[in-house]
Write a protein that binds this DNA or RNA. Sequence first.
DNA 1: CTGTTAGCGCGTTCAC
DNA 2: GTGAACGCGCTAACAG
Lengths: 321, 321
Amino acid sequence: MSTIHDVARLAGVSIGTVSRVLSGNPATSPESRERVREAALQLGYTPNARAQSLRLARTGVIGLSISDVRNPFFADAAHGAEQEALAAGRVTMLANADEDSAIEARYLRAFRAQRVDGVLMSPQGGSAEGARSLVEAGIPVVLLNRTLDGVDAPVVTFDVRQGIEQAIMHLRDRGHRRIGLIAGPVSVSTGRARVSAFESIRDELGLDPAPELVQLADGRRGGGADAAERLLDLSPAPTAVLSSNALMSSGAFEAIRGRGAAVELVSFDDQDWMRLVDPPLSVIEQDAAHMGAVAMRLLLELIDGGSPRSVTLPTRLIPRG
Amino acid sequence: MSTIHDVARLAGVSIGTVSRVLSGNPATSPESRERVREAALQLGYTPNARAQSLRLARTGVIGLSISDVRNPFFADAAHGAEQEALAAGRVTMLANADEDSAIEARYLRAFRAQRVDGVLMSPQGGSAEGARSLVEAGIPVVLLNRTLDGVDAPVVTFDVRQGIEQAIMHLRDRGHRRIGLIAGPVSVSTGRARVSAFESIRDELGLDPAPELVQLADGRRGGGADAAERLLDLSPAPTAVLSSNALMSSGAFEAIRGRGAAVELVSFDDQDWMRLVDPPLSVIEQDAAHMGAVAMRLLLELIDGGSPRSVTLPTRLIPRG
DNA sequence: CTGTTAGCGCGTTCAC
DNA sequence: GTGAACGCGCTAACAG
């Protein structure tokens, strides 16, 4: 790897001139501009961003920590966030925490060591420590989809109550009175929020309040299947089930079909397959890409010294079947 | 952010001692070890990785450029690669090229500027320039799933011919003689390879050789749907269709169902929904996570000065329906 | 307009 | 066992 000195030598100028030319400083002669550009090209010179950022304040890179790349909801969110950063001239480095707070901690440490300009993260359950220490270290942080108690950072979330309400009212209108919920783990805020919203709306509507209709799962496919089995084992079994994310829905769908049960399944997050199966799933759509983009915009604002407020995004019911 | 000087001051030692303690150099007294650790903890000190890597050769970070995070095949591959790197004590930064070689170029430049230890990438179609310039700059590169002409880097791919053969023989055994192919873009190696493997095996087996049975698409959902429509418009239409990736399969499935056509669809890549729909799809399974892990291992070997050979992975037919 | 120089934060000699 | 000093590659301030 060539350095600025190599370029200077080849161009026959000083390193100061090279630096000026390459950074677009107007205080350079057309002549040296030409020579420097040529030398840089010939050497395939790429400035060392690490050395650069040692002098500068910024690095131009933003850390993005995601719960699980394999969950399309988060993959979409990451994509939306990234596009927004790209448009703002910044590069995003994606870390996959894999729903494991130990891995998350490791990546957050790396982000911190790399001195990224800011961190966008959908926190894991378990501990708020990772996010908190970033905030305390003065690193701009924005939370994605999940809140964290005691962490002073803007959050972008979906309106959980609205989503649950849309789902339950839809099912009630279709005649269901005994509705099950497959919830995510209570270790993450969305898991908790959905359970309490579900309970309160169900009660307001006078539907069957049996506590065993709420089943907690780990947010993964297998967990969704297991929770569905438990619901189907009840007597009487619920006639409809609301599932909190797409992965669990796929497990639940298979379990329900496997038992030949006549249970109507409604899912959070819209995915292609949900309208491909028979019967198709009604869904509570959450525009993950939009969430990612909004969150990135907040983060950029925060990095630029602003103090953006948290944002709650609406959900939308798409009835099917 | 505190620096090594702050720690040294608080601990009452020199920065040299701090550095030695924190890097585990045995030439330190138990006493100063204790004081330094305490000071570092109190300050929440994290060494500046950028400054560190300016002195050291390595950065401990590996760049991973993926064609499309939203394609589960690549998400799985990224996950597999990442796990492998984590196990080797390295952190990976994921870049999403989004099937766009301009974005890819931007990320590769960033990787290069950051002086990552190595780059694992599934190259975009269009230009091999990005990968080539990395290789020429002496940065260890391993290619994922797609090859690139004229780029001297190890590649991990699946056995395309084997996969196509499994699919076609399966369909032939079920009585099909007129089989369509929805192929990825010819700009990427897997797209080209699948077309030629398809044609040669089809001919060897004496099946219908009509050229219009091969339809090129962009690898996305909509492209798959369009290609399927074109196939269905043929007269006679094919009785079976092989689709080159999961995204296109979902589009094709919907198109076929929308026309009420009796066409058997076989897909590359196994995804949950493929056994949930009716009829379920037979698939050519490709273990993406394994591919990612193998590729990462090659890259680590390359970084350590080895010269690993390219690897071809087997595919597996999962008949359904 | 340009060359020189002082750090940015850190690891590593080299003396002590 | 420890401190001082140098240099990694770069930008910005300062002279000229």
